[in-house]
Design a protein around this nucleic acid. Structure first.
Lengths: 112, 112
DNA sequence: CCGCATCCTACACGATACTG
DNA sequence: CAGTATCGTGTAGGATGCGG
């Protein structure tokens, strides 16, 4: 937040989205949350190679950016779950296109 | 390339694509190349805040992964251009969805 | 079970300078 | 103009342990 000019980085939609979804895990988390809300332990089971630190960290930033909503049952033992927000669901077309691209890409390299 | 097991990272389409497109610049480069092939200096003008190092580096990995093709005129002074491959063009739907998402997202946060 | 705090390593990215 | 090499830094992300 210094007095740096807002360079020509002029808010670019591609950059906006890729900032929101950058990193190794966010897309996978969103994808797993799409069918139904999940508790952290369930997410961890669905994405076994994520560390708990990263899971919590990414869930937090996804909540902060509004793509995911956190529900707290306020019970003991602690029980929460996370689900996609309305805008969070709107990432699904991106993911669908990415999956479709991956299929085409793997087909492509197979034939070379 | 050590003797590490190929963990459960079991080839996931989302991961495949996001590996190919990860980083701050690849999507922007692909986007700029979509309308027409461009020379590095033209790309640099269209994406002013990329360093020349990153531009060259990203172009190289994009060529290696097959999304972009490099043409060398073999002249002096050096003259080359880069263009999307057939499979490279297939990233456009992803980018389109990302743009569309960004619009929706900015609309969303504006109303809060 | 949930989530935070520490420590540490690898790498993405930037700045700069140099070659053909 | 195209491309490479070197160096420095911030941060993503992994391992581990603690506390509510």
């Amino acid at each position: 937040m210094e007095n740096k000019e807002l360079k020509v980085t002029a808010r670019c939609p591609i950059r906006t989205t890729s900032d929101l979804l950058s990193g190794k895990w966010k897309l996978l988390i969103l994808y797993q949350l799409a069918p139904k809300a999940l508790r952290p332990s369930q997410l961890k089971r669905l994405i076994p190679d994520i560390s708990e630190k990263m899971l919590n960290q990414e869930l937090k930033t996804l909540c902060d950016s509004g793509l995911v909503v956190r529900y707290n049952y306020g019970e003991v033992p602690p029980k929460v779950h996370y689900e996609l927000s309305a805008i969070g669901y709107k990432t699904m077309p991106i993911i669908a296109e990415m999956q479709s691209f991956a299929m085409a890409y793997e087909e492509e390299i197979k034939t070379n």
